[in-house]
Design a protein around this nucleic acid. Structure first.
Lengths: 199, 199
DNA sequence: TGAACAATTGTGGTTATCCGCAACCCGACG
DNA sequence: CGTCGGGTTGCGGATAACCACAATTGTTCA
């Protein structure tokens, strides 16, 4: 899936104009005439940037944005607004919208912002990939291994862990080795750094 | 220093109105007629919330905000704007302003937002205190100790560290013990968790 | 029922860590 | 000149971690 600008606007003239504009700057784009239509095609692995009209028939751009936020989408969003409503713009940006531009907009400036947003998304994407890989490694730990890991991260000695779990020290050692192996680290310090903040 | 609302506006009528408004809701406040006057009194331990007019004679509210950002101030800022300029509002919020309200504003709503901002500041304050304490502990490490600590955090064995620094293992052990003592931890794992992200 | 997997334990040995005790070198400071 | 802090080192021992080899139980799934 190539990164692209995803346009959602109920005004066909605007959609066409944006499509041509993006094409002229060699930015991939697709357009939908309504939030509902976009949602039908939405997948959580879309990459790039959303360009949303705030005011549309049916679901508004803001409602779509809220919905996508709830679903955990992290696609940067640029709102297009036809009527200077500051509280709306401020609220959108505070919620995490990437930008909010008024119509009529300067063509080149809009594309610049879209490209900038796509760059941000690409950067975030890398971090998300790392976190997903980490999460997948975590899930392949058995419950028992996780109990042991928690205690390792608490800085406890194998002996103490063994007492707490009522098992032999040797068993803790085995779990410990498996944890390191599954998590792809070779010391408790690396494990702590890998999981700092999470868990 | 009690938390308070710090008002900066060149319109005396607004300053007075805000002062009375805050007093009526039992919110401490102080007012300045210009960004320059406020800066003269500014200290980095001010707590609460800044209420800034964007447009003022001399330095504008936005310039003051930028300046404070550069100086590392983390006081939440609420802008007051008399002219519906969306790009300005969006830019301010994207830079981290807490809110942006248009004049004329609803009195109660403004105070609500100020109180909310002050709450956010109080919460951030706790985290800052922790980080400051951490930073102070870090500075009391000697340069040599920091070299050793870096390598401990890289998960290296004392023996390896000794080789890299061309010193005896015993010396590394001594440094290691001092580091743990000064940082108030009792294992490398705790140290890694304490410093994850930083350093 | 047999394979696969999770959890468990033991033995014995190597390597690391952790510490108290003792000591030396050196630059800075009064 | 003497003290103090930072950096250094050695010795010896207690404790913990790491690991290969070997083995037992119970569950799940084909």
């Amino acid at each position: 899936m190539k990164p692209a600008a995803y346009i959602v606007d109920d005004d066909e003239a605007i959609r066409d104009a944006l499509t041509w504009l993006f094409r002229s700057r060699h930015v991939e784009s697709r357009a939908w005439p309504s939030a509902e239509a976009f949602l039908a095609d939405w997948r959580d692995d879309l990459r790039g940037c959303l360009v949303l009209d705030v005011r549309m028939g049916g679901m508004s751009g803001l409602q779509l944005f809220d919905l996508l936020c709830e679903r955990g989408a992290r696609l940067p969003v640029i709102f297009l607004s036809g009527h200077g409503d500051i509280p709306l713009a401020v609220a959108a940006v505070k919620k995490g919208a990437y930008d909010f531009v008024e119509k009529p907009f300067n063509d080149n400036e809009l594309v610049d912002r879209v490209i900038s947003a796509m760059g941000v998304d690409a950067a975030h994407q890398e971090r998300r990939a790392g976190q997903a890989s980490l999460a997948s490694r975590l899930t392949q730990l058995t419950p028992r291994e996780r109990e042991v890991m928690d205690r390792i991260l608490a800085g406890k000695y194998n002996k103490v862990i063994a007492d707490e779990l009522n098992i032999a020290m040797r068993t803790v050692e085995v779990h410990r080795a498996r944890i390191f192996e599954k998590m792809g680290v070779k010391s408790a310090v690396e494990l702590a750094q890998l999981l700092s903040g999470k868990h």
